[in-house]
Amino acid sequence: MIIGVPKELKDHESRVGITPAGARALVEAGHKVLIEKDAGALSSFPDDEYQAVGAEIVGEAYHVWSNANMIVKVKEPIPSEYYHFRKDLLLFTYLHLAPLRELTDALLEKKVTGIAYETVRDRVGGLPLLTPMSEVAGRLSVQVGATCLEKERGGRGVLLGGVPGVPPGNVCIIGGGIVGTNAAKIALGTGAKVTMIDLNLNRLREIDDIFGGRVHTLYSNAYNIEKAAMEADLLIGGVLIPGAAAPKLVTKAMVAKMKKGAVIVDVAIDQGGCIETAHPTTHTDPTYEVNGVVHYCVTNMPAAVPNTSTLALTNATFPYVMKLARLGANVAIREDAGIAEGVNTFNGFLTYKAVAQAQNREYKAISQVHP
């Protein structure tokens, strides 16, 4: 198979879909690997490292897309890339289609087989390709939130850890999953007071055990969310419903009652966000204010640390890349139920139910349309 790795075009997206180590393994397995010039440079993987392991460096994205059987990316294609789509193309990347109707239209029109990292399942029903970036984003959320709290960046001027004689900052985390747990680790490490809100009581019990009672836990309802939001210096949204639009748990009215200069980091923004006042931002222009509350809503947060993020991501994605290259999409979908779960578009059909519900579209299970 010919595997293509184009350079990412999303704003300040500096990760890359395959590392030189992955390219070497593919070449040794008999596949051809096309890397767009400088695709890995911002992740500290220069072209000569790819060439040294047998990959071919291609000067233009068009030649990567047009010659490859499978395109391996990190983030969803942007509109300028849609013209590369074609019927026989396998696209393996994060797609996050729920809020992206235009991209969904393009994938369906061109009958692209789109397998989304974020909906691939493992044998125990987990999300193995979403987990590493959720870990990175969760840890980064506290780091960027602490920076945004600085007065010169519009924040309240609060140091999360406080100092002797001065109380620490209040961090409220909504969602006790991978993002929330990793955010809690870093927030506790700064010395902040941390509150976590979740709908799953068993998960709250686990959080209490993991952190030895140092994280204050609250059951998720509108009353508790509003109260915690009003007390928060830093509010982190980390709610996930796989493949679906995130629920709006923090309303505009709640944001209006928050402290002036408080900070919101909505990690769920690539699925539409769980804060009603949140809208996507970029690394170029990452923040804005609503009612005096600073919002950080960058949709590709892990791109801020591309070397770490690329290594973490490809550790998880590469076994699937190799399997798809070895078997081809049709056989892999038929033989691996987890890969089948990852298929969002196939031969002009939308095959992921949560995306169909978010966009009010017709849905066909992959088993109904796959030969």
Results as ranks from 00 to 15, higher is better:
residue 180 G to K: 00
residue 229 A to R: 05
residue 170 N to Y: 05
residue 141 S to P: 00
residue 187 A to P: 07
residue 177 G to P: 03
residue 165 G to I: 01
residue 175 G to Y: 08
residue 208 D to F: 11
residue 166 V to I: 13
residue 180 G to S: 09
residue 234 L to T: 05
residue 161 G to Y: 01
residue 187 A to S: 12
residue 142 V to M: 14
residue 210 I to Q: 14
residue 216 H to I: 12
residue 218 L to K: 00
residue 226 E to S: 15
residue 149 L to P: 09
residue 184 A to F: 04
residue 181 T to A: 12
residue 224 N to E: 10
residue 214 R to C: 13
residue 210 I to D: 11
residue 178 I to Y: 09
residue 188 L to S: 08
residue 145 G to V: 02
residue 146 A to N: 12
residue 222 A to C: 06
residue 213 G to V: 07
residue 181 T to W: 10
residue 198 D to R: 01
residue 137 A to H: 02
residue 183 A to W: 08
residue 234 L to E: 06
residue 235 L to H: 11
residue 194 V to Y: 01
residue 143 Q to W: 07
residue 223 Y to S: 15
residue 167 P to V: 09
residue 213 G to P: 01
residue 166 V to M: 06
residue 161 G to A: 03
residue 164 P to Y: 07
residue 160 L to Y: 11
residue 148 C to T: 10
residue 170 N to E: 14
residue 192 A to S: 14
residue 167 P to Q: 07
residue 159 L to C: 12
residue 208 D to C: 13
residue 159 L to I: 11
residue 172 C to S: 13
residue 240 L to C: 13
residue 206 E to L: 05
residue 231 E to S: 07
residue 214 R to M: 12
residue 210 I to W: 14
residue 138 G to P: 12
residue 216 H to D: 05
residue 202 N to E: 13
residue 227 K to V: 04
residue 191 G to H: 05
residue 185 K to G: 00
residue 172 C to A: 15
residue 157 G to W: 10
residue 212 G to R: 05
residue 143 Q to S: 13
residue 230 M to S: 15
residue 156 R to C: 09
residue 197 I to R: 02
residue 234 L to V: 01
residue 189 G to E: 01
residue 140 L to T: 06
residue 236 I to A: 11
residue 227 K to Q: 15
residue 136 V to G: 08
residue 235 L to P: 07
residue 218 L to A: 00
residue 191 G to N: 06
residue 219 Y to G: 05
residue 192 A to T: 08
residue 166 V to R: 00
residue 162 G to F: 08
residue 160 L to F: 04
residue 207 I to C: 00
residue 168 P to C: 09
residue 174 I to E: 09
residue 151 K to C: 12
residue 216 H to Q: 14
residue 178 I to E: 11
residue 224 N to C: 02
residue 225 I to L: 04
residue 184 A to H: 00
residue 185 K to C: 05
residue 211 F to C: 04
residue 172 C to W: 09
residue 228 A to Q: 01
residue 159 L to V: 14
residue 201 L to H: 13
residue 227 K to D: 07
residue 161 G to I: 02
residue 182 N to L: 06
residue 159 L to F: 14
residue 224 N to R: 07
residue 135 E to M: 13
residue 166 V to N: 00
residue 158 V to R: 12
residue 140 L to M: 11
residue 159 L to N: 10
residue 144 V to T: 11
residue 175 G to M: 08
residue 142 V to G: 12
residue 137 A to E: 13
residue 204 L to P: 12
residue 227 K to A: 14
residue 172 C to G: 12
residue 182 N to S: 13
residue 147 T to R: 15
residue 206 E to G: 00
residue 240 L to T: 11
residue 170 N to M: 07
residue 220 S to R: 15
residue 170 N to Q: 11
residue 204 L to C: 11
residue 185 K to R: 15
residue 174 I to W: 04
residue 177 G to L: 03
residue 203 R to D: 10
residue 138 G to I: 02
residue 241 I to Q: 09
residue 173 I to D: 03
residue 144 V to N: 08
residue 169 G to L: 07
residue 174 I to K: 02
residue 229 A to W: 03
residue 225 I to M: 11
residue 169 G to W: 02
residue 207 I to L: 00
residue 218 L to S: 00
residue 233 D to Q: 07
residue 190 T to E: 13
residue 146 A to V: 03
residue 215 V to S: 04
residue 191 G to M: 12
residue 139 R to Y: 07
residue 146 A to M: 09
residue 155 G to Y: 07
residue 143 Q to I: 15
